[in-house]
Structures are given as C-alpha cells and as structure tokens.
Write a protein that binds this DNA or RNA. Sequence first.
DNA 1: AATAAACCCAACCGCTTCACG
DNA 2: CCGTGAAGCGGTTGGGTTTAT
Length: 327
Amino acid sequence: MERLRAQEDIKKGPWSAEEDEILMNFVKENGPGDWSSIRSKGLLPRTGKSCRLRWVNKLQPNLKKGCKFSAEEERVVLELQATLGNKWAAIATYLPGRTDNDVKNFWSTRQKRLARILRASSQPNRAHKHKAKATVVNEASTLQASVSSFNQVKETSLQCHICSCFWSENASAINILPPPDCLNMGTAGVISGVPPAVDEHTSPPQLCIQSNNHQPSVSPPFGIFFSTEQPKPALNNLPLWQENQDFGAELGEPNFMGALTQQESLEVGNMAQHNLGLSLDELEATGQNFGEINDYKDKMLTIPDTLFADLSDDMLDNLDAVPRSSS
DNA sequence: AATAAACCCAACCGCTTCACG
DNA sequence: CCGTGAAGCGGTTGGGTTTAT
C-alpha cells in the first residue's frame, strides 16, 4: 500500500522551470549522482531515473542546444554507427555537446527520412529499367583498383576518382566517401593525406584523407564499408551493412534478397548502400536532384541485367529506388 | 487559411549491468 | 553466492513545431 501510494506520488511528464532549478541546485551541491535521494529527500516528486535523464539530456553544461548536427557530426555518427552499431552512448563520446539521446534521435530521424526518400524515388520509370550495365563497368573497376592501391600506399598520395577516404584501422574498416562533384568521368582527384596525431587512449587510430583539389559539395556520409579481413577488397565481395540486408524488406518484398544468389544479393545490397548512405541535408541544400546522384552512383557499380530477369514488376518498380543509369 | 505530412526532441519504458550488503 | 536497488543504455512514443500542399 505504501509502495502504491509512493508510485502515485511520482510525477511524470514535462519538467517545469522550478523543477529544473531544484535539480540544478542539487547537482551543484552534491554532484551528478545519487539521483534517487532527490526524491527520498522530498526535493522533487521524480524518480532518480527521471532526474538523471533530465540532467544528462538537458541541464548539464556545455550541451549543444537547438542546433542541428553539422556535416562533420553527421559523418562521425555514420562512421561510428557502421563500426560500433547502435552504441549511442559510445558514439556520443566522440561528439562534444551531444548526448546519446541526441545521437539516437538524429539517427532515427535520418533513417525515417531515408526511408521516405527511398519511397519517393521509387516512382516507376520503366524507360530506365534494365539499362544498368553499359557505362558503369569501367568506373566500378576504377573504384576497385583505387581501393586496392589505397591499401598498399596508405599515407602517400594516389590518383583516383574518390575524393575522401576514412580508414579506421582498429575497426578493420575503410570508408570511401566519393562526393558527387567528382562525378565527371575522367576527373581524377589527387588524394593525399597523412595520419593525424592520435591519442590511442582516447580515440581510435584513424587515417583521414581529404582531396587536395576538391572541396566536396556534398560531404560524407556516402560510403562503402568493408572489412580489411577480406583478402581482396572488391566491390562484389563486400559484406553488407545490416540496413542493406534489410533492404529487401524496404523494397516491399521481404524475400527479395533470398530470391537472388549470394553474389547478386551482395551487389544489390551494396548498390542499395549507396542509396541509403547519402548526405541528405547537404544534397538537398545543393538543389541537385536525385536523378543526378543516381546517375553518379550508376557509375560506381555494375548491375548485370540478369539480376532483374526473374523479378516481378512490383519488385522492379521498387528497385527504381536504386540508382540506375539513365543512358 | 486550412490541413496534412514531416520533423524534432523530451521523456518514458524495459532491460542489463554494477555495486553493495 | 544471492538478492536488491541504482545507474546506464537503447528502443519507443507522443506531442509540439515546421514545412508542404
């Protein structure tokens, strides 16, 4: 009975300014901890859990309030999410002024947005269907070659079509970030960079390479992640991100991937990765339409026509969400 | 101007981990 | 060891705000 009454005394819902002030004063005097004593001392009718959350997410100093994630923050979130998974608290430690809740909300919103854009871009355009193969082969091999050489030269410069690469050695992952202003065929960006000073105790060793002659108009994330444990990093041998594995479901055909061979699944999945990995904010800000971006992505991957031979019309309609050459 | 859709984010819930008696 | 409570974390929800139609 006592417990029941105690539960009824617990206040929920939005915090008032007065409650915030009481909590701030408590932390000022006692430090951020012993949250449950706030209620047991009768200071606030809130659970310790609620008090802690309020402090962590809203009241603690140095929080970035009311400003959107920057492109750099976005890049960090995407890179770390790919490496760490949904470890929001861990990811937030790399983003000063951001909480795990911030990162979580950012990611969640972004995923919804991607899903919406994916749907929106799925409008049927049969004229472009089945035309993926012709112009893309060379670019795919270019990327492949670049990845291989990058593996070997690491710290020196190299020529390729990719303008921005991120190499997280401890995570056994390389993130390739090709901004669309490198789209022009034949444009070779000189990539050079040196490993930044790294405190191995506070941050994972990371080599960040930026283009010398390109300031990406659409900054990362736009990436392919793969394990360096793969003996030969090749486009058709990349492990999929989880969201790629889920892509079949996104297409409205849960068994889509299952209908394909593993090799085909990998290719489609990585193609989808491109689609899902766009930096939407900046992409939209540039005013570029998705057709252009999709054209670009076409140049990065080869999708054999045979892939589509056995798919239903509905599935093909959905696949229009995936980049396809307009030529 | 009205309405719907999308976005944003505060706060809750449930689960796991950890510390302590 | 075991039980219990606190703290921490990730998932989810709901409501307010902004943007698009």
